[in-house]
Amino acid sequence: MTPAFRPIAFVLNGRRVAVRVHPLKRLLDVLREDCRLTGTKEGCGEGECGACTVIVDGKAVNSCLVPVAQAAGTRVTTIEGLHGRHRLQAAFAELGGAQCGICTPGMILAASTLGPKPTLDEVRTGLAGNICRCTGYEGIYRAIKAANKARGARREARGEGREARGTARARTAARRRRP
């Protein structure tokens, strides 16, 4: 007998969803199995590799470490939520940021939280929780740099100022720090 669970509601890629699952079910499994979004990958299941990275309320988190109950009332973005239109996605595809591709969705989501113009050191620190086994990271750094350059160029063309996202960057750095 499967016990009846109370619905857990959150906003997934801009849409409100409610799932009736065990509150301790991993957010990763809820996304992949109950929401049928398989772009989020499992690499280690213990928060080491970052393949399952999703964005919860603006922060990159390992969805394998989040019981779905903790996601109640939050805004969750997965790779599907970028709709293939994010500049990082094109840059990763074109510049060698993706090879076997299993780390790519998590890597792109983590990179999207790094602020408008991260330095190479900030990128390295910001992505320290995302392991890539194929690229040696050079292709990833190249893609992030190019994506940010394209973004800057577009903004200048539109005459917009650069918004400050220092806080997001500080949060990411704090999250990535290991004991």
């Binding site: 992949r32 979004l37 398989t38 772009g39 989020t40 990958k41 499992e42 997965t78 790779i79 599907e80 970028l82 293939g84 990082l88 996605q89 094109a90 990763f92 595809a93 074109e94 060698g96 940021g97 993706a98 591709g101 299993i102 790519t104 969705p105 792109i108």
Partner: peptide
């Protein structure tokens, strides 16, 4: 050139066995 499978992997539609 742009790798054949690059876009599917960056967009999240590439299907691995567990998918």
């Amino acid at each position: 050139v742009v790798r054949k499978d690059g876009t599917a992997k960056a967009v999240g539609t590439a299907r691995y066995v567990d998918d």
